[in-house]
Simulated assay, not measured.
Amino acid sequence: MMLSLRQAAELTGKSKSTLTRAIKAGRLSASRNAEGMFAIDPAELARAYPFVAPSDAEHDAHHGAPRNSETDEAAILRLQLSLLIDERER
């Protein structure tokens, strides 16, 4: 399961343009999917850029409740589950 550029940006707290520049400079490996969009392996993303948790204010605005602290591994697992559910629904 690969990440889109948007998903990678959300996980790392970096902008899509920052990640695109890193891909073009060879600091981050990515392939192109069938639509021609970048596809990034979560392990490769974690190698190049550590994942960050969204700010408390951002989380509260989206979810209406404080978040529980979680590890990078838990965040990756949540994302993988979300991607699998999205893929199954297609």
Rank of each mutant, 00 (worst) to 15 (best):
A65V: 05
L11A: 10
S4F: 05
L11S: 13
A46R: 04
R21W: 03
R67G: 09
L11C: 10
R67M: 11
I76S: 09
A34P: 06
M2T: 05
A46L: 11
K24L: 06
V52A: 09
T18L: 03
A39L: 11
R88I: 01
M1D: 11
S69Y: 06
S82A: 14
L83P: 02
A22N: 08
H62E: 13
E87V: 01
K14T: 02
A34V: 06
E73H: 14
G36W: 15
A53P: 10
R88A: 04
D86H: 07
A53T: 15
N33W: 07
M2W: 03
K24G: 00
D56N: 14
T20Q: 06
P50E: 09
F38P: 11
E70Y: 04
H59V: 00
R32L: 14
V52K: 07
G13N: 02
L45F: 00
T20C: 03
A30H: 04
L45M: 07
A65K: 14
A25Q: 15
T71L: 14
S31I: 08
A25E: 14
A53G: 13
P54E: 06
A48I: 06
E35K: 15
S29I: 00
L19N: 06
R27E: 02
A48E: 08
E70I: 14
R78H: 14
P66E: 05
A74S: 13
A53I: 09
R47V: 00
E70D: 05
A46V: 02
D72P: 14
F51N: 00
L5V: 08
T71K: 11
R21M: 07
P42D: 03
S4L: 06
G13H: 01
R88G: 01
R67V: 07
L5M: 11
Q7W: 05
K16P: 13
L45G: 00
A39Q: 13
R27M: 01
A75C: 08
K16F: 01
Y49S: 04
L79F: 05
E89L: 05
P54W: 13
T18Y: 02
D72F: 08
L77T: 06
L19H: 08
L11I: 12
T71Q: 12
K24D: 10
N68C: 12
M1E: 08
A43I: 12
L11N: 04
L83N: 06
A9R: 02
E89M: 04
M2H: 15
D72I: 07
A61C: 09
L84R: 11
A8D: 06
H59P: 09
A39D: 13
L28F: 02
R90E: 07
P50R: 03
A34H: 14
D72S: 15
H62L: 12
N33P: 03
P54M: 13
A39N: 12
S4D: 04
E58Y: 01
R21A: 10
R27V: 00
A43K: 11
M37L: 13
R6H: 11
S55R: 14
L79T: 15
P54N: 08
H59M: 03
R47W: 01
S55N: 04
E35C: 09
A53Q: 15
